[in-house]
Amino acid sequence: MLPERRGDLFILTATLLASAGWLFSKEAIAGLPPIGFVGWRFLLAALIMLPFCYRPLLALSRELLLKAAAIGLVMTLNLIFWIQGISHSDGIGEGAFIMSLAMLLVPPLAWLIFKERPSHSFWLALPIAVVGLLLLTMGNGLSFSKGQMFFLAASLSLAMYFNLNSRFARRIDPMALTCIQLSVVGIIHLFYSGLFEQWPDSIAPVTWGWFAASVLLATSLRFGCQTVGQKYSNVGNAALIMMLEPIWTVLISVFWYHEPMPIQKVFGCILILVALLSYRSASLLIWYRSRRALRAGTRR
């Protein structure tokens, strides 16, 4: 099998594991405190990854280590909103599509913080995504539920994380960067949980099973597959394959939770997906053209 195809399969596996992680998390927090669950999940995942990246970690300067940890604080905020969204929602499908809007929130944040103007493709995709989001909320009389508000906040903080991560952590080994950020997320969540959450006296074995699946499959294995996949997969293929995550999540939610998907919500999901595809496709086309121009200039 060609390395590129192997990379695509790793990315596809990562999206499946990520979507399954929504199910694992929702089932786990039925018997565990939400913040404490996230804390142990990410700290243990970081410890599992540590043997594979301790050499790059030891080679990091203090400046880069602090930058990676600071970006981990934004990731922490994102996961606080995300787990609260899950705990306040009956299903997980529409939340996954709301979270996918983070890709469209990255350009306006970059414009606001770094003075980078969004491309024309962004302005074309934005109204399509807005209409799709409104269709997702029509069941609530065009008002957002508490769960949807948490998912929107998670989407915004995720866009902030993408902006910072892409600029301040380019010189850090991806595995080491992930390990640092997962550690920060885990430690802060556990500190908060110790202060404000009440843990149950007994936890059912099935809850521990969901917790183990979250740590081993949806976090450690998922990030491992994603890292390996991005190493071999074409960047365009990887970006498009990763957009399948909300689709898998909707299918899981409809099957497992019997989440109702009336026609307006289906159209809302489709419009958000169309907006993301159109924006990503245009961005990738610009990237390909710049690469081709660079290669042509190098040959001269």
Results as ranks from 00 to 15, higher is better:
residue 165 N to E: 00
residue 70 A to K: 06
residue 237 N to I: 03
residue 214 S to A: 15
residue 236 G to V: 07
residue 19 S to Q: 08
residue 222 R to Y: 04
residue 204 A to G: 02
residue 142 L to W: 13
residue 281 S to H: 02
residue 140 N to V: 07
residue 167 R to V: 06
residue 119 S to D: 09
residue 112 L to R: 05
residue 269 C to E: 13
residue 18 A to Y: 11
residue 183 S to Y: 03
residue 188 I to N: 04
residue 17 L to W: 00
residue 75 M to Q: 07
residue 44 L to H: 06
residue 274 V to E: 03
residue 275 A to H: 04
residue 228 V to Q: 01
residue 8 D to G: 04
residue 292 R to V: 10
residue 99 M to K: 05
residue 128 I to H: 12
residue 244 L to N: 12
residue 282 A to M: 02
residue 33 P to N: 08
residue 182 L to N: 06
residue 1 M to I: 13
residue 208 W to F: 14
residue 35 I to P: 06
residue 68 A to Y: 09
residue 253 S to H: 12
residue 222 R to P: 01
residue 153 A to H: 03
residue 61 S to A: 06
residue 42 F to W: 08
residue 93 G to L: 01
residue 297 G to Y: 06
residue 85 G to M: 13
residue 291 R to P: 05
residue 291 R to Q: 15
residue 92 I to N: 12
residue 161 Y to S: 01
residue 185 V to S: 01
residue 148 Q to T: 06
residue 271 L to T: 10
residue 76 T to M: 07
residue 49 M to N: 05
residue 286 I to C: 03
residue 221 L to Q: 12
residue 1 M to T: 13
residue 201 D to S: 14
residue 42 F to D: 02
residue 269 C to I: 13
residue 25 S to E: 07
residue 119 S to T: 12
residue 87 S to I: 03
residue 34 P to W: 13
residue 178 T to M: 00
residue 24 F to Y: 10
residue 194 G to S: 07
residue 12 L to E: 09
residue 35 I to H: 10
residue 154 A to D: 12
residue 257 Y to M: 08
residue 214 S to M: 06
residue 249 T to P: 09
residue 156 L to P: 07
residue 99 M to A: 14
residue 277 L to G: 11
residue 208 W to K: 03
residue 273 L to Q: 06
residue 262 P to L: 03
residue 251 L to T: 13
residue 47 L to H: 11
residue 214 S to R: 03
residue 295 R to G: 08
residue 198 Q to I: 15
residue 31 G to S: 15
residue 201 D to R: 09
residue 114 F to A: 14
residue 138 M to V: 08
residue 80 I to P: 02
residue 146 K to N: 10
